[in-house]
Simulated scan of single mutants.
Amino acid sequence: MVLLPFLAVLLLTTSFAFSSPTQEHLDAPQKPQSKYFDVQAHRGGRGNTMESTLPSFAWGLIDGATTLELDNGITQDGVVVVWHDESILPEKCSDTEPISPDDPMFPYVGKYIANLTLAQLKTLDCGSKRQINYPMQLTYPGAQISTLQEVFDFVECADPSHQMLWNIESKIDARYPNRTLGVREFVQKQHDIFISSPYLKSITYQSFDWRAIVAMKSLNPEITTSALIDDETSAASPGSASPWLAGLRLDDFPGSSPDIRIAQAARAIDADILSPSTSFYITPPDPAAKGSTQFTTKEMVDEAHRLGMKVKPWTVNRLDIVDQIIEWEVDGIITDYPNVVRRWAKQQGLRVAPKFPKQRIFACLEKHM
């Protein structure tokens, strides 16, 4: 486990204070609509290919995704890498060999990314193990964890005119601050990569830990931000704030329902996008309740739109749910199957992003792997 300096922990617990929500927080002009309906390839499209690897992003491009969605961790030696989990899970990666015969950290599987160097991570095979819930995944034995810069470089090779959009998440767990770098250092290291990339203006920055959104907006107000939320991260004990929401208490907002208050809270941190889960995770929906049994509701979408935010739910892998939420005029969909959702969007007459030449993508993949 990474042990943060006491002063850093103290700063994180004291630096993200908010005034009470006001109408000024809640009202904002409507933002312009995207050129294409936003089909986001979740982790590159993990339903189709090994997640979060260069092959997964290659197939996201081939499948015509508008946006590549991915997650960042930071290694012990301070490198921003593309991986979803805080630790290396045995169901996703396998050890090959240590970087030195007497490396005390070997085996690396099971260790936190924050406790491993980039060189140690690069020994892992993260392309051979097909996930049990995704039986159609293409495997790419030997595929490695990439740095964020390596992913940018690969996609730029396939997309020289820089048309691709990005949705990049910080993997910070608000409940366990010692498992990753602190919020400020995490955000700063990501931002350093963003500003050196030709894709800077195409990046949306998202997080469940809303402190990261506040920190990124403070660092660079021009970066589009997205507030991730589900029933777990929105939950709080009576009279307290969820640790995920940067000190905000949903009960302090004037909305008549939790769904409305979630949208208002996201607006209070100046998020440009609200990105709720479509499903419940820890709270089973009440079958006797009126309306949708999904976490995302029409009421939530309507309030977010009224406040000038877009709404892009995750992770939507069923077309019946796509049918439902599109009636509520959501602005995009994050999915493990971008090829399926893109095909559905074309059927509905929605404008979809053009696909990139497959041969060029494969040539770039060969070069960068």
Rank of each mutant, 00 (worst) to 15 (best):
residue 332 G to N: 09
residue 364 C to L: 11
residue 325 I to L: 07
residue 331 D to F: 07
residue 344 W to N: 02
residue 352 V to R: 12
residue 320 D to F: 10
residue 323 D to E: 05
residue 341 V to W: 02
residue 367 K to M: 11
residue 320 D to V: 09
residue 357 P to D: 05
residue 319 L to S: 09
residue 359 Q to N: 15
residue 335 T to V: 04
residue 317 N to C: 03
residue 340 V to Y: 12
residue 317 N to S: 04
residue 319 L to C: 10
residue 323 D to K: 01
residue 360 R to D: 15
residue 354 P to I: 11
residue 358 K to E: 15
residue 351 R to S: 15
residue 347 Q to C: 09
residue 363 A to N: 15
residue 343 R to I: 07
residue 350 L to D: 03
residue 338 P to R: 06
residue 316 V to C: 00
residue 341 V to G: 06
residue 363 A to L: 13
residue 316 V to H: 04
residue 348 Q to S: 12
residue 336 D to L: 01
residue 340 V to N: 09
residue 353 A to T: 13
residue 321 I to D: 00
residue 337 Y to F: 15
residue 348 Q to L: 13
residue 348 Q to W: 10
residue 344 W to C: 02
residue 334 I to C: 09
residue 366 E to L: 14
residue 328 W to C: 02
residue 318 R to A: 09
residue 322 V to P: 05
residue 331 D to A: 04
residue 363 A to S: 15
residue 315 T to P: 03
residue 347 Q to L: 12
residue 362 F to T: 11
residue 350 L to G: 05
residue 354 P to G: 09
residue 360 R to M: 12
residue 331 D to S: 11
residue 347 Q to D: 04
residue 359 Q to G: 10
residue 344 W to Q: 06
residue 358 K to W: 12
residue 332 G to C: 11
residue 348 Q to F: 11
residue 359 Q to L: 14
residue 362 F to E: 14
residue 328 W to A: 00
residue 343 R to V: 07
residue 343 R to Q: 14
residue 353 A to I: 06
residue 355 K to W: 04
residue 356 F to K: 04
residue 358 K to D: 14
residue 348 Q to I: 01
residue 351 R to W: 10
residue 364 C to G: 13
residue 316 V to Y: 06
residue 315 T to G: 06
residue 325 I to D: 01
residue 347 Q to H: 13
residue 334 I to D: 07
residue 337 Y to S: 01
residue 354 P to H: 08
residue 324 Q to S: 06
residue 351 R to P: 13
residue 314 W to F: 15
residue 327 E to W: 07
residue 335 T to L: 05
residue 344 W to K: 05
residue 317 N to H: 11
residue 351 R to Q: 15
residue 352 V to L: 13
residue 350 L to P: 09
residue 356 F to T: 06
residue 328 W to L: 00
residue 321 I to C: 02
residue 331 D to K: 06
residue 354 P to L: 11
residue 352 V to M: 13
residue 333 I to P: 07
residue 355 K to G: 13
residue 365 L to P: 03
residue 348 Q to A: 14
residue 365 L to Y: 04
residue 324 Q to V: 04
residue 351 R to V: 11
residue 344 W to T: 03
residue 333 I to V: 12
residue 337 Y to K: 08
residue 348 Q to P: 10
residue 315 T to V: 13
residue 320 D to L: 00
residue 334 I to S: 06
residue 366 E to H: 14
residue 322 V to W: 04
residue 346 K to E: 15
residue 367 K to C: 12
residue 339 N to K: 12
residue 360 R to C: 03
residue 365 L to H: 08
residue 323 D to L: 01
residue 349 G to F: 12
residue 348 Q to H: 14
residue 345 A to R: 00
residue 365 L to C: 12
residue 325 I to W: 00
residue 316 V to S: 02
residue 334 I to Y: 00
residue 317 N to P: 11
residue 338 P to M: 05
residue 353 A to L: 04
residue 348 Q to D: 10
residue 331 D to W: 09
residue 367 K to D: 11
residue 335 T to E: 03
residue 335 T to A: 05
residue 349 G to T: 10
residue 366 E to R: 15
residue 356 F to V: 04
residue 322 V to F: 02
residue 357 P to R: 01
residue 355 K to Q: 14
residue 318 R to C: 01
residue 343 R to E: 12
residue 355 K to E: 14
residue 329 E to R: 13
residue 353 A to K: 12
residue 319 L to W: 07
residue 320 D to K: 09
residue 330 V to E: 03
residue 324 Q to H: 08
residue 360 R to Y: 00
residue 330 V to P: 02
residue 339 N to P: 08
residue 342 R to Q: 08
residue 328 W to Y: 01
residue 346 K to G: 14
residue 335 T to P: 08
residue 359 Q to H: 14
